[in-house]
Simulated scan of single mutants.
Amino acid sequence: MANVLVVDDSNTMREIVATFLKQNGFEVAVATDGRDGLDQLRRDPGIRLVVSDINMPNMDGLTMAEKIRTELGNKEVRIVMLTTEDNAVMRSRGREIGVTGWIVKPFNGNAVLGPFKKLCGMT
């Protein structure tokens, strides 16, 4: 059972983020897009944190976040966007649908390690 779900259509980014988190004590699942991410969440109720890109095929990260809150009715899981997108309109939409945090790439694992552990109840 994972406590973090990493959702990104880039194999490289998924590997970078997942490997860093695993090396720091997290149980990690991965998904290739928003649709795959929703499927993972349905199968694994232990996921406490979703780290997701926005721009992905099939289903983007913000749509996935919205469906996590509405279709799955999951208000507990924390959702952090890890993206190249840094505009106020997208951030505002994210806040409105329940996104917990926003990180602009590149990924700096050491900067987020403490907050991620806190979001997963590991501290």
Rank of each mutant, 00 (worst) to 15 (best):
G94W: 08
V30A: 09
D86W: 02
G37Q: 04
V6L: 01
V51N: 05
R14L: 09
N11D: 14
L72E: 07
G25A: 02
C120F: 10
G98L: 11
L72M: 09
A2V: 00
V112S: 07
G73V: 10
M59S: 09
N3P: 00
A18T: 09
P45L: 13
P57R: 11
L113Q: 10
L113M: 11
A65M: 09
L119A: 13
T70L: 09
V50P: 01
L113D: 11
G46W: 08
A29M: 03
G73S: 08
P45D: 15
A18S: 15
R42W: 00
I68K: 03
V112H: 13
I79G: 09
A88M: 08
M59E: 12
R78I: 10
L41E: 08
N11G: 12
T84N: 00
P45Y: 12
L113C: 07
E76M: 10
I16P: 00
N55G: 00
I47K: 14
Q23R: 12
I47E: 12
D86R: 04
P106I: 12
L38T: 07
G98E: 12
L21V: 02
T100H: 14
K105S: 05
T100Q: 13
A18M: 09
R78D: 11
T19Q: 08
K22E: 11
D53K: 05
D9W: 05
G25W: 04
V6D: 01
I16V: 14
L62I: 14
G46D: 14
C120R: 10
I16H: 04
E15G: 03
K118L: 15
L49R: 10
S52P: 06
L119E: 10
G109N: 03
D39C: 04
R93H: 07
L5A: 02
S52D: 06
K105W: 04
T100W: 11
R42L: 07
N11S: 14
M90A: 14
V4Y: 01
F26D: 01
T32A: 13
D60V: 10
M13H: 05
T123N: 15
R43A: 14
V28L: 03
M64E: 04
N55Q: 11
N108P: 01
D60W: 08
T123V: 15
P45Q: 14
V112R: 06
L82M: 06
A65V: 05
V4H: 00
G101D: 15
V50N: 06
R35H: 11
V17H: 01
T84E: 00
V7S: 06
T12R: 08
N24H: 15
D86Q: 07
V104P: 07
G73T: 10
V104S: 10
A29H: 04
V30D: 03
V89W: 03
V7Q: 02
